[in-house]
Simulated scan of single mutants.
Amino acid sequence: MIPENSTVLIVGATGSIGRYAVTEALRQGYNVRALVRSQARAASLPAGVELAVGDLTRPETLDPAVHDVDAVVFTHGSSIQESDVRDVDFAGVANILAALGDDPLRIALMTAVGVTRPGVPYAAWKRLGEKLVRASGNDYTIVRPGWFDCNEPGQRKIVMRQGDTNQSGGPADGVIARDEIARVLIDSLSRDGANRKTLELAAEVGLEQEDLADTFEALLPDAQGSLDGALDKNLVSVAAESKLFRDELARLG
Rank of each mutant, 00 (worst) to 15 (best):
Q209C: 09
L56K: 00
E180R: 14
G253H: 04
V11S: 06
H76N: 11
P3S: 13
L105C: 11
R127W: 10
V72P: 10
A239R: 12
N151H: 14
G119K: 12
Q162A: 00
Y30R: 01
A98H: 11
A124M: 04
R183I: 02
A172S: 15
H76R: 00
F90Y: 04
E204F: 07
L51G: 11
D214Q: 13
V11W: 10
V36R: 01
A91H: 09
I181Y: 04
L100T: 12
M110L: 14
V115Y: 09
Q39S: 15
D55Y: 01
A202H: 06
E24R: 13
P171L: 09
T111A: 08
L249T: 04
D247Y: 03
G170A: 11
K243L: 12
P153T: 01
V36Q: 05
V36F: 07
P145F: 01
A172D: 15
N5C: 08
G193Y: 03
T57D: 05
G174M: 03
P171D: 14
S190H: 10
I96Y: 03
D247H: 11
E82C: 07
G225E: 11
V205P: 13
R27E: 14
S6D: 13
V22W: 00
A123K: 13
S83K: 14
D211Y: 03
R117V: 14
G229M: 03
V49D: 07
P121A: 12
P145I: 00
E82A: 15
A21R: 01
S237N: 01
L132N: 13
L132E: 08
Q28Y: 05
Y122P: 03
C150E: 15
V88Y: 10
K197I: 02
G170W: 05
G77V: 05
E4C: 07
A25C: 09
Q81A: 14
S237P: 00
T215F: 03
A230H: 11
K131Q: 15
V66M: 13
Q209R: 08
G229D: 01
V32S: 10
S16W: 08
P3W: 04
V85H: 03
S83V: 15
L201Q: 02
V120Q: 13
S6K: 08
L105Y: 08
V175H: 07
S190V: 11
N5H: 15
K197D: 07
D247K: 06
V120S: 10
A172P: 03
N195Y: 05
E208V: 07
V49Q: 02
